[in-house]
Simulated scan of single mutants.
Amino acid sequence: MHAAETAPTLHPWLVHAKELRVRAGRHPAVDGLDLTLTAGVQGVLGPNGAGKTTLMRALSTVVKPASGSLTLLGAQVDGRADLREVRRKLGYLPQQFGFYPRFTVREFVAYMAWLKEMPKTAIPDAVQRAIDRVGLTTKADAKMKTLSGGMLRRAGIAQAIVNDPELLLLDEPTVGLDPEQRLDFRDLLRDLGADSCVMVSTHLVEDVVAACTDVILMNEGRLLFQGTPDDLIARGGQGDAGDSPAERGYSALLRQHRSNA
Rank of each mutant, 00 (worst) to 15 (best):
A75R: 14
V62E: 10
V77W: 01
L35N: 11
G32I: 07
V215E: 04
P229T: 04
S201I: 01
R186V: 01
R154A: 08
A241Q: 13
F99L: 04
D240I: 03
L33F: 09
A155L: 01
D214F: 01
L152F: 12
V109P: 07
A50T: 02
T61Y: 06
L177R: 10
Q238D: 15
A155T: 00
Q226M: 13
M112T: 04
G25K: 02
I131V: 02
T36L: 10
A210G: 11
L10M: 09
P12D: 13
M144H: 08
K145Y: 12
T71F: 09
T54F: 06
D82Q: 14
S67R: 15
S60M: 06
N163H: 11
E206I: 07
R102A: 08
L167G: 00
R84P: 05
V109N: 09
M151E: 15
L37E: 02
V162Q: 03
T54E: 12
G40W: 03
E85T: 08
T146G: 01
V200T: 03
A210V: 12
N260V: 09
G150K: 03
D243I: 07
M144I: 13
T54P: 10
R87E: 05
S259R: 15
V44G: 07
A194T: 15
H11A: 12
D78E: 15
D191K: 12
E19A: 15
C212D: 11
T9A: 12
H27E: 13
A241I: 13
A241G: 03
P119D: 07
T38S: 15
K52H: 04
D78I: 07
G91T: 11
E117Q: 14
P165A: 01
V15S: 09
V205G: 11
C197I: 06
L35C: 09
R80V: 11
G176S: 14
S148K: 02
N163M: 06
R80F: 00
L90R: 00
E107Y: 05
M56R: 00
R87G: 00
C197T: 15
T146R: 06
H257V: 12
F97P: 01
A81N: 07
E166G: 10
M118G: 02
S148Q: 05
L223T: 00
K52D: 01
I233L: 11
I216G: 00
S67H: 11
T104E: 01
L115P: 04
L168P: 05
D178E: 02
F108R: 04
D231F: 13
L59H: 08
W13D: 05
G176D: 08
V15L: 09
G156V: 00
Q95R: 02
A110Q: 10
K89P: 02
P179R: 07
Q96P: 05
V134Y: 06
D34T: 07
A39I: 04
T213G: 15
E117P: 08
T61M: 03
N163E: 06
L183A: 13
